[in-house]
C-alpha cells in the first residue's frame, strides 16, 4: 500500500514516454555517429548526386559518343559503323557552316548591342537609389529576361502580325512602310534579333549595376573630392574594379546567345528560307525531324566541346575575380 502511494501509477505514465524518447534519441545519436568518418561521410552525402549524374549524364553521354561513330537513323533503323565519317561530313557540310556563321553573327551582333545598351542604361540607373517606385520599376525592367522564351516568341508573333499587329501599324503610320517582319527575308533576322535584344538587354543592365556596385565607395568619393575628370575616373577607378563582373556577364550572355533555340523556333523556325537558321535549330531539325541520330550525336559532341571551352574561360575569369575579392578582404 505504501509502495503504491510512493509511486503513483499516474507518475509512471508521465515519465515513461519521456524516457522512451530520450533513449530513442540517444540511440539515434549513436547511430548518427557511425557515419562520422571523414572518408565515409562525404561519400555518403555525394551518393544521391552521383546517382543523378551517372544515370542522366554519364551514361547518355557515353552512349552518344558511341553513336556518333555510327550511321543510325530512327526512321530507317539500320546501324552501320562509319568511323569518323559523321564528323567528316559535318566538316564538309555547307549547311552547317552557313548556320554556324549565322550563329556567330547572331551572337556577335546580339551581345555587342546588348552590352552597349546595357552599359549605357546601367550607368543611367546607377544613381537610381532614391527613385520613386524603384522596386516596381526594376521589376518591370527585368521582367523580359525571366519570361518563358516560348511565350515571348508567341506573343511577338502577335505583335509582328502583318495585318493587325501593332508593329506593322506603327511603321505604316509613322514611316509609311508596310512590314511583315517574320516572313520577309530581308528583315526577319533583324526582327528576331530585336526580340532577343529586348529580352536580354535588361540582363546586361543588371550586370552593369552589379559591376558598378562592386566599385569601392570610398574610392569614388575620394575621386569626387579631388575633382578627377570623368574619363580618368572611368579608367582608373571604375574599370579595374568593374571589369571582372562585366566580363562574366558578357561571357554568360555569349554562351546563352549561342544556345538560342526556343525563341527562334517559335517565331520563325529558321525561316523564311533559312535566314534565321541557327546552329541549335539545325541540330534539332536533323535529330528530331530527319531522325539522323548518328550525325546529330557527332554534332552534339562538337557543341559539347565548344561548351567546355567556354566553361574553362568562364572559370578562369571567375577565379581572377575571386582572387581580387580575397585581396580586398
Amino acid at each position: 500500500m505504501s509502495l503504491e502511494t510512493l509511486s503513483p501509477s499516474s507518475g509512471h505514465q508521465e515519465t515513461l514516454p519521456e524516457l522512451r524518447t530520450n533513449s530513442f534519441r540517444r540511440a539515434l545519436a549513436r547511430i548518427s555517429h557511425l557515419t562520422d568518418d571523414a572518408r565515409i561521410f562525404p561519400t555518403l552525402i555525394l551518393l544521391p548526386v552521383m546517382f543523378f549524374f551517372i544515370v542522366w549524364n554519364v551514361i547518355p553521354t557515353l552512349w552518344m559518343i558511341g553513336l556518333s561513330f555510327y550511321r543510325y537513323s530512327l526512321m530507317l533503323g539500320n546501324e552501320q559503323f562509319l568511323g569518323t565519317n559523321n564528323y567528316m561530313s559535318i566538316m564538309t557540310d555547307s549547311q552547317v557552316w552557313e548556320a554556324l556563321s549565322r550563329t556567330f553573327i547572331w551572337v556577335g551582333a546580339g551581345v555587342a548591342i546588348q552590352t552597349i545598351l546595357g552599359l549605357l542604361l546601367g550607368f543611367l540607373f546607377w544613381g537610381s537609389r532614391d527613385m520613386p517606385g524603384r522596386r516596381l520599376a526594376l521589376t518591370l525592367l527585368f521582367t523580359p529576361m525571366v519570361l518563358t522564351p516560348v511565350a515571348v516568341g508567341v506573343f511577338f508573333r502577335l505583335l509582328y502580325e502583318p495585318t493587325f499587329g501593332i508593329v506593322n501599324y506603327l511603321t505604316t503610320t509613322v514611316l509609311g512602310v508596310q512590314v511583315n517582319p517574320l516572313n520577309d527575308r530581308a528583315i526577319a533576322f533583324g526582327a528576331v534579333l530585336l526580340v532577343d535584344t529586348w529580352m536580354w538587354t535588361p540582363f546586361m543592365i543588371l550586370i552593369t549595376l552589379a559591376a558598378l556596385g562592386s566599385v569601392p565607395k570610398a574610392e569614388l568619393e575620394a575621386a569626387e573630392i579631388d575633382r578627377i575628370p570623368w574619363l580618368k575616373r572611368l579608367r582608373y577607378i571604375i574599370w579595374p574594379n568593374a571589369k571582372f563582373i562585366l566580363m562574366l556577364g558578357i561571357l554568360l550572355r555569349t554562351i546563352d546567345s549561342f544556345k538560342t533555340l526556343d525563341l527562334v523556333y517559335l517565331m520563325t523556325n529558321g525561316g523564311p528560307g533559312n535566314t534565321t537558321d541557327l546552329i541549335a535549330l539545325l541540330l534539332r531539325r536533323k535529330a528530331f525531324e530527319a531522325f539522323d541520330l548518328g550525325w546529330s550525336s557527332a554534332m552534339a559532341i562538337l557543341l559539347l566541346l565548344t561548351a567546355i571551352a567556354f566553361t574553362s574561360i568562364y572559370l578562369y575569369i571567375l577565379n581572377l575575380n575571386r582572387r581580387r575579392q580575397e585581396a580586398i578582404v
Partner: peptide, 24 residues
C-alpha cells in the same frame, strides 16, 4: 564543379539527343 557548370553551358538540344534515345 567544372562538369556541373559546363552542363549549364551546353546547348540544350545537344543534351537532349542522348536522353531522348535513353528515354525511348
Amino acid at each position: 564543379m567544372f562538369v556541373l557548370l559546363s552542363m549549364r553551358m551546353v546547348p540544350a538540344v545537344a543534351v537532349v539527343i542522348p536522353l531522348y534515345l535513353m528515354y525511348s
